[in-house]
């Protein structure tokens, strides 16, 4: 369903500091997959997500989505079918708006934002039911400004909001990294449930090796712009955190970390 074909991506292009992160990089994701991606800092995980979402454009190569070339499609147009939850809980919601307003905006995604009433009160029960699923007590605080919520609540809201309209691909960009251990566990469980319920294809970058092992049906490790480990099915089920750490350490020694 998603295919990165022969991608080359350079940074600081045309300067003495030019670095090539991806050199003819290929990667593909099948429909219905839930892929966890791990790797050290600078290995290209987030850049890969940015290339998929359209934040960056590749210098060479193509991004194919359901067979169509979307390499030149701007980020906001790709957002019509790709949802994204960021590491920063502030990135997925608007702090100055209330929970209700945030959800009303998300509810209108892929429709025109014209002069109709911004908030439809009839939809409030629906919003409440979505929030109840998070078990974070947000369902009774629809009129609260999102800025007053905790990081965990905001991230749960961001997740719900991203999933409010039908998506084809969900991108999770270290979305539990900024949270405390308990919140990150809850957000991960919520994520897993949402993905299972909708059967959506998902790509999750994480630094939490245990999450990468426990969740999803495919595990990918990246290093210096390449996939160094790719386990799916039974292979993935049998993988352990220790196995991953062994690979991780051997790579780190190689690159002198």
């Amino acid at each position: 369903m998603l295919e990165l074909q022969d991608i080359t991506k350079k940074f600081m292009k045309g300067t003495p500091d030019e670095t090539t992160l991806f050199d003819h990089f290929c990667f593909s994701v099948q429909k219905g997959d839930f892929v966890s991606v791990v790797g050290s800092n600078g290995s290209g995980k987030t850049t890969m997500l940015n290339l998929i979402c359209g934040t960056y454009q590749p210098d060479e190569g193509k991004v194919l989505f359901e067979g169509k070339d979307i390499s030149r499609l701007p980020e906001f147009k790709r957002a019509a079918f790709i949802g994204r939850v960021f590491q920063d809980p502030k990135a997925g919601t608007c702090s100055d708006l209330t929970i209700l307003e945030n959800m009303a905006l998300a509810d209108n995604k892929n429709k025109p934002f014209g002069l109709g009433r911004g908030v439809n009160k009839k939809r409030m029960d629906y919003y409440r039911s979505l929030l109840e699923n998070c078990n974070m007590g947000m369902e009774n605080r629809l009129q609260t400004k999102v800025g007053a919520l905790s990081g965990g609540q905001r991230q749960a809201l961001a997740l719900v909001i991203a999933n409010m309209t039908e998506l084809k691909l969900l991108i999770l960009d270290e979305h539990t990294a900024a949270l405390d251990p308990k919140s990150s566990e809850r957000i991960m469980q919520l994520t897993d449930r949402l993905i299972r319920e909708s059967g959506i294809t998902a790509l999750m970058v994480t630094h939490n090796l245990r999450f990468a092992i426990e969740y999803g049906n495919r595990l990918v490790m990246m290093h210096q712009g390449q996939v160094v480990l790719d386990k799916a099915g039974e292979d993935k089920k049998n993988a352990s955190v220790d196995d991953l750490l062994t690979v991780f350490n051997s790579i780190s020694i190689e690159s002198g970390n």
């Binding site: 980020e75 906001f76 949802g83 009303a104 934002f113 002069l115």
Partner: peptide, 28 residues
């Protein structure tokens, strides 16, 4: 009245968090 419409609300969203507008598949 305008600020209560969808378009008005989107204006608030863009000023607050342009990325959010992008995620709504709208050009901030």
């Amino acid at each position: 009245a305008y600020l209560k419409t969808k378009s008005g609300l989107l204006l608030f969203a863009t000023g607050d968090n342009a990325q959010f507008t992008t995620m709504l598949a709208k050009d901030p």
